[in-house]
Measured scan of single mutants.
Amino acid sequence: MPSETPQAEVGPTGCPHRSGPHSAKGSLEKGSPEDKEAKEPLWIRPDAPSRCTWQLGRPASESPHHHTAPAKSPKILPDILKKIGDTPMVRINKIGKKFGLKCELLAKCEFFNAGGSVKDRISLRMIEDAERDGTLKPGDTIIEPTSGNTGIGLALAAAVRGYRCIIVMPEKMSSEKVDVLRALGAEIVRTPTNARFDSPESHVGVAWRLKNEIPNSHILDQYRNASNPLAHYDTTADEILQQCDGKLDMLVASVGTGGTITGIARKLKEKCPGCRIIGVDPEGSILAEPEELNQTEQTTYEVEGIGYDFIPTVLDRTVVDKWFKSNDEEAFTFARMLIAQEGLLCGGSAGSTVAVAVKAAQELQEGQRCVVILPDSVRNYMTKFLSDRWMLQKGFLKEEDLTEKKPWWWHLRVQELGLSAPLTVLPTITCGHTIEILREKGFDQAPVVDEAGVILGMVTLGNMLSSLLAGKVQPSDQVGKVIYKQFKQIRLTDTLGRLSHILEMDHFALVV
């Protein structure tokens, strides 16, 4: 994948999101292997301009796509893939009243899908469409860049269908997702969380590099694949309309690839034109409109599966009536509230959605109805927002919020430890010299600072030695090549209790 991002070429006709291997024109390309080798690009942008032909009021008969309808489940399912879809609609009884809503608040519980998330729908649909058009064949390999849930859905379907599955996901995604993927037989590649989507090191860039190296491999490409919004247009939206008897006044959905909100909203605009569509985008993402909503100094966020630093091709923002931004604290607070007060075992993005819903639905009156999409299960986040310690460490809970008995030293300040200034190293000294210094002084790690004293990161003896043994660096290389740029900081005025929580999850903390 090139470091400079080429513009994806656009073909003359058809839909841009065809499933299957992508040609340089962004659509299915038939021909000899030699032709494909000559024409197939190194990668295709996940934010390529959409060429979708959908228009409100256009006859369904003019759609270029294969459409399906929700099917009634048999008493005995032939395999677990038949437990994807037909998820329950559940009334939220307490939270709406707590925040003064007059309307009825309903939750579409997508964590009841077989793999635990709304992404099971698009995973199965992308595979079925690729099999139907002859792209996927027995023994082929599926590769997908994902925040985890699409990966789980694909790995689940691949396990049943017999495909090899490789999932490329950023490091910030939970260990629970990784464990589930491994249990399903998927191979996992992790990428830096802070890598831009168009960087060769991003999950998108690495996935395309693997595709170019592995024979008979395919990126189904949830960011561009029409099967993504079509899955929701054909099934999720129809289920909502049936469950609500066609009567709903507002739908609120958090947005990642945009397939969920695009597919549902398009069908609702056709069948229930008075329904307002509300999009939820986390602070630090750029999906919301108008652009002024996205202006923030924050560039990272903890909530998973929603928000991006690019506009995915499948996201149709014209069908969203209003956007709201959400933050991590309210997302996790509301997710825990949904679990504790409503018994809905949902993930953090569901918290984002409901946090926005109780604001947006203030305009609705008694007798009206708001539906929220709860995308995934708490299963993926047992060591994250479900953990009091994690919430404390991230600053989303305060010590006084917890009532468990603490040891005698818990409320003492870090400054009472009488710490001395640490050994520091410059980023320009060599790895070999740094190892000598650390061994001589008896230290395992040291902060790396520039000549102005600005902290650049941390270097550890173990990481340097393993990097040297693996051949990633040489003793003569500058130590700046092996620094940890993500590390926890703590102030002298913070409590030892807070430091204790940090050290339970990290090997060190830097006192500043």
Results as ranks from 00 to 15, higher is better:
102 K>F: 05
213 E>A: 13
190 R>H: 08
188 I>Y: 02
135 T>M: 10
175 S>G: 06
203 H>Y: 08
61 S>D: 04
244 C>T: 02
209 R>F: 06
33 P>C: 07
248 L>D: 06
25 K>A: 02
269 K>D: 05
76 I>F: 06
2 P>Y: 07
15 C>S: 07
148 G>S: 06
200 P>Y: 11
253 A>G: 02
262 T>P: 02
136 L>V: 08
155 A>T: 10
136 L>H: 02
238 D>Q: 02
112 F>L: 02
127 I>M: 06
179 D>V: 06
250 M>S: 02
99 F>Q: 08
269 K>W: 02
230 L>S: 02
144 E>T: 02
15 C>D: 11
128 E>F: 08
16 P>L: 12
251 L>P: 02
261 I>T: 13
238 D>S: 12
46 P>A: 07
39 K>Y: 02
275 C>R: 02
32 S>K: 05
211 K>S: 02
175 S>M: 02
34 E>W: 07
44 I>W: 02
23 S>P: 12
134 G>S: 14
41 P>G: 09
75 K>R: 02
160 V>Q: 14
53 T>P: 07
67 H>R: 13
35 D>F: 02
163 Y>V: 02
21 P>C: 15
270 E>Y: 07
152 I>S: 10
83 K>I: 02
24 A>C: 10
207 A>G: 05
191 T>C: 09
37 E>V: 14
141 T>K: 15
146 T>P: 07
89 M>V: 10
3 S>R: 13
231 A>E: 05
241 L>T: 02
88 P>L: 05
17 H>C: 02
182 R>G: 11
156 L>I: 05
7 Q>M: 02
141 T>Q: 08
211 K>L: 09
27 S>D: 15
188 I>N: 08
227 S>W: 05
199 S>E: 05
47 D>C: 02
253 A>N: 11
233 Y>D: 07
202 S>L: 02
156 L>P: 10
256 G>T: 02
130 A>M: 02
92 I>D: 08
78 P>M: 02
112 F>Y: 06
133 D>W: 14
244 C>R: 07
150 T>V: 05
161 R>W: 07
96 G>S: 15
260 T>W: 02
7 Q>S: 06
234 D>I: 05
256 G>C: 02
18 R>W: 14
2 P>S: 12
89 M>R: 02
241 L>S: 02
80 I>C: 10
48 A>T: 14
224 R>G: 07
19 S>A: 13
213 E>W: 04
166 I>Y: 08
177 K>S: 05
71 A>T: 12
138 P>A: 06
240 I>V: 13
67 H>V: 12
22 H>D: 02
16 P>T: 08
161 R>C: 10
123 S>T: 05
63 S>W: 02
91 R>N: 12
272 C>E: 02
252 V>A: 11
154 L>R: 02
245 D>K: 02
95 I>W: 02
138 P>S: 12
170 P>H: 02
45 R>C: 02
56 L>I: 12
214 I>K: 02
112 F>E: 02
97 K>I: 12
127 I>V: 11
96 G>Q: 02
259 G>N: 07
35 D>W: 02
212 N>L: 12
176 E>C: 02
187 E>G: 07
10 V>Y: 11
213 E>F: 08
19 S>V: 02
176 E>Y: 02
241 L>D: 02
175 S>H: 02
13 T>N: 10
271 K>Y: 06
93 N>R: 04
48 A>S: 04
